[in-house]
């Protein structure tokens, strides 16, 4: 049982003294938990994929080449948002606005290329009928694209704020959160891509 002596020790620890400056910003922390939650969702889907792929009547597919381009696009966009964050921290607002705009365009381009990938796959005869690798790819990749789209919306909002915002806000927290999320959807795509290449 916990004694007061123990409690006294805990009081001396950094957690106990409530020193806000040592802590991560609550909104950023919330984002990380949200990322954990999204990871669980995709973990559920990819494990469903693994379970199904071990059963009879599983139909593998050939991954369309277009996905390589979209992979390249999202990798570059990760780079640009990182540069945007640095520009914001250096107070180079013009550079920041340009880089945010480029990232937004790249994000949209990524989704467009995913769509081209879908079309290529669809034209090769893999439709939504059935329950093979193709159908899983459609569902999982679309869900990923929805998450990218969410990031694009956030970027557009930030872009508008950076251009038309009447209030000057120097807190880098929103930009940092956007970049964290963006890197996450990038990483998530790399994981999914490798997953499909390897098991598809």
């Amino acid at each position: 049982m916990l004694t007061n002596a123990n409690l006294g020790q805990f009081q001396q620890t950094p957690l106990g003294d409530g020193g806000q400056r040592r802590k991560i910003h609550p909104h950023k922390f919330t984002l990380w938990i949200a990322i954990g939650s999204i990871v669980m969702m995709f973990a559920g889907l990819t494990s469903a994929y693994i379970v199904k792929s071990n059963q009879a009547t599983w139909q593998p597919i050939v991954i369309p080449k277009v996905f390589w381009y979209s992979t390249a696009i999202i990798l570059v966009s990760s780079l640009t948002i990182q540069m945007a964050l640095r520009a914001f921290k250096d107070r180079e607002m013009n550079r920041y606005r340009t880089l945010i705009a480029i990232t937004t365009v790249l994000g949209i381009l990524f989704i467009v290329f995913q769509y081209f990938g879908f079309r290529q796959l669809w034209n090769s005869g893999v439709t939504l009928r059935g329950s093979g690798a193709g159908q899983f790819l459609y569902v999982i990749t679309s869900l990923h694209a929805v998450h990218v789209l969410g990031g694009v919306v956030a970027l557009v909002v930030m872009f508008i704020k950076a251009f038309f915002g009447t209030r000057k806000n120097y807190s880098s927290i929103p930009v940092e959160m956007a970049s964290t999320y963006w890197h996450f959807v990038d990483f998530l795509w790399i994981y999914l891509f490798i997953f499909f290449m390897w098991l598809g």
Binding site: L2, N6, L7, F10, Q11, T13, L15, G16, D17, G18
Partner: peptide, 8 residues
């Protein structure tokens, strides 16, 4: 709050 460690 200040002093509220997890074990309190």
């Amino acid at each position: 709050t200040k002093g509220m460690s997890m074990t309190r």
